[in-house]
Amino acid sequence: MSTPTLTDADLVERYAPLTVDKDTADFYRGWAERELRIRHCTECGHTWLPFRPICPRCWSFAVDHVVVQGDGTVHLMMLLHQGPPAPGVDYTTGPYPVATVEFADHPGVRLTATIVDARPEDLVVGRAVSLTWFERNGMPHPAFRPTEVTR
């Protein structure tokens, strides 16, 4: 799904209250296209999050992005019994799961996002998960769902 007509102002407005600025615009443009991008150094190959304008390893400013495949492992896991308001989030119907996931193809690079389609026993550190997307305010947001376990 491509949204070529999305202006910078649209991007900022539609992803509010997230902080969309010069450094992070490319990250959120990826979201709009259901593409999870991480920063990549074209000189030394280092990858990292969150988006920043310099490679912390070699100080190159020649940074672009690579798209992660999205399989990973739950590194940190919290169940929010209360928290910030957001459309579609109702803490009274049960705790809202938020995980920090470390990507299998980029060890050490992690994204914090919600978990969907999970049974309670899936909401644990170490669970294998895969990238998926959901919409909030009409805009795609990344999420993770438990990876099907081969039986």
């Binding site: 209250p17 997230l18 940190l76 919290m78 929010l80 928290g83 910030p84 957001a86 989030v89 809202y96 938020v98 920090t100 914090t112 996002a113 919600t114 947001h141």
Partner: peptide, 11 residues
Amino acid sequence: QAVPESIAMAP
């Protein structure tokens, strides 16, 4: 303004 998916600060 925080969002549920933010880990910043206390969470």
